[in-house]
């Protein structure tokens, strides 16, 4: 399963919505259950899924799924 597929699975679990399809320009305004409170759930779930950690500013500043996906990819790259 690639990163986007794993991320999609996380989104669907967190928002209990199997119809979610991730696109780079998808934002919180496009998903009914995605607000500032459930966003914390999403961040926590992504951290656990990928074994990564987000900084506070990263958590607050993702403006769409494209940015989130890029950030996950960067964190997974071998240093």
């Amino acid at each position: 399963m690639d990163i986007q597929e794993r991320l999609t699975k996380v989104f669907r679990t967190v928002f209990d919505n199997e119809s979610i399809t991730l696109t780079p320009d998808l934002t919180a305004d496009d998903v009914d259950e995605w607000d500032s409170l459930s966003h914390i759930n999403l961040m926590l779930a992504i951290e656990l899924e990928f074994g990564i950690e987000f900084s506070q500013s990263e958590i607050q500043n993702f403006s769409n799924v494209g940015e989130l996906l890029e950030c996950v990819k960067t964190k997974l790259e071998p240093s």
Binding site: V14, E33, L37, S38, N41, L44, A45, E47, L48
Partner: peptide, 21 residues
Amino acid sequence: SKELELKCRVHVSNKVSTSAI
């Protein structure tokens, strides 16, 4: 654990409301 915390948070969010997490 972190996993159980996530399970609790997601359950409350999807069962009651995001404002109840």
